[in-house]
Design a protein around this nucleic acid. Structure first.
Lengths: 152, 152
DNA sequence: ATCTTATTGAAAATGATTTTCAATAAGGGA
DNA sequence: TCCCTTATTGAAAATCATTTTCAATAAGAT
């Protein structure tokens, strides 16, 4: 069963109805190689379901985020982009050249957390780790091409 | 020399003029115990310099961020808040009860980075780590009081 | 086939941030 | 100290992202 089927099930279980616009949005996000802004999701979904409205995109994204299926990815300029959620100790690695974003298996940081707890008196509940770098393709000087494609 | 004097010097060196509204903004941010939104900086600065305009706040914050003196702190709902910048391996630890934000000395994550580089082919350039938890005061059930104060 | 109710898109409202512009004032130099 | 250049200012308007409202539609249970 692929990711899209999984997401559809989670949506249905939570009482959501599966509609054509939702299906389009889900497919776009689930298959994207990089984190997308709502407006980008809108434009891409429109190719698949031309009648779609931007409001529906916002509403569906909210729903998917509530259900833990997608998550915000933070960029230098803000955090309005979304990607399929990471699990466990996975975190995002964002290419600052072309935007391609992958997941990597992170360390277990619990040792750090208990050290911080002892030192600060805070009770640490969550953490947020993200890496930025240059992907293999951009290292091979494909930067310009990718960037152009992104703005097309 | 305290932080404010340092900031003033950096601003002057970069060709900025030191004005009363700027001084007010700088003092607010430099002395804050938590990350502030532009609109909060505006309201607080107004107590010190009533004529100040919101636009000036935005412009000054941009400048301070460009110069590396302040930095965005990301919260669950976005990343429009700002704090004095961290140095070296320092990172933010945000109290989700009252918003108080402190810096902690983080681990050297370079071992993790080279592992990720080997595995993914990416060249890792930057990282972003933030912790969320409950501060000692909020653990002592002062949560309600602090939250009220925050919205006053 | 029917019925309940979640979902839809358009339009309007809201909220945050940026741009424009003429007036002001910082701070270097005479 | 007094100019003079030019960065900075605040107000108003413009822009951009997101949310709310609402009547029409359609999903999926019965």
């Amino acid at each position: 069963m692929d990711r899209i089927d999984q997401w559809v099930r989670v949506l249905q279980k939570s009482g959501c109805r599966i509609t054509a616009p939702r299906r389009a949005i889900i497919e776009i996000i689930a298959n994207s190689q990089r984190a997308l802004q709502p407006i980008e999701v809108y434009h891409l979904s429109k190719q698949q379901y031309p009648g779609i409205g931007l409001v529906t995109v916002y509403r569906t994204l909210d729903r998917l985020e509530e259900l833990g299926l997608i998550r915000r990815v933070h960029q230098e300029d803000g955090c309005h982009t979304l990607m399929p959620a990471a699990n466990g100790h996975e975190h995002y690695l964002v290419c600052t050249g072309c935007g391609r974003t992958i997941l990597f298996q992170g360390d277990d940081l619990s040792a750090l957390f208990s050290r911080v707890e002892t030192k600060t008196g805070f009770q640490v509940n969550e953490h947020w780790l993200q890496l930025f770098g240059i992907c293999p393709d951009c290292l091979d000087h494909k930067v310009v091409i990718e960037k152009e494609a992104r703005h097309a």
